[in-house]
């Protein structure tokens, strides 16, 4: 294997069904239902997916949802704000743990 990530994996995602067609079918049916228009619009869900894609740092997802967000009518400013939401939560998640550190320090330090 020359490289771990290959762009052509994205359009061939369905091939994951080779090892277990039933599980793949269930997953893709679920996936489709999740992204259908519901209480949240398809555009809003695509922005959430874009933010999560940056949190899990999945290049496939970033590729798919950058295009999907544009197609659903979001612009670069809106998409960038979504990525900053992911960034803020990531950063905040580290920083809030600083209070655990603070507790430990207060307990053992003079």
């Amino acid at each position: 294997m020359e490289q771990y990530y290959k762009p052509e994996h994205l359009p061939h995602f369905g091939q994951i069904g080779e090892g277990s067609p039933e599980l793949a079918e269930k997953f893709f049916a679920y996936y489709g239902a999740v992204f259908a228009d519901g209480a949240l619009s398809v555009r809003e869900k695509a922005l959430i997916a874009l933010a999560v894609a940056h949190t899990v740092q999945c290049p496939y997802c970033i590729d798919a949802y950058s295009k999907e967000c544009l197609q659903q009518g979001s612009d670069l400013e809106q998409m960038t704000e979504a990525v900053h939401v992911a960034t803020a939560i990531r950063g905040g998640a580290s920083l809030i743990h600083g209070l655990q550190m603070l507790d430990h320090v207060k307990q053992v330090a003079m």
């Binding site: 359009p11 061939h12 369905g14 992204f35 695509a46 798919a64 949802y65 197609q71 659903q72």
Partner: peptide, 10 residues
Amino acid sequence: GSSCGGAIDA
């Protein structure tokens, strides 16, 4: 409606 599903070779 060629949504992200379009990227999936179902």
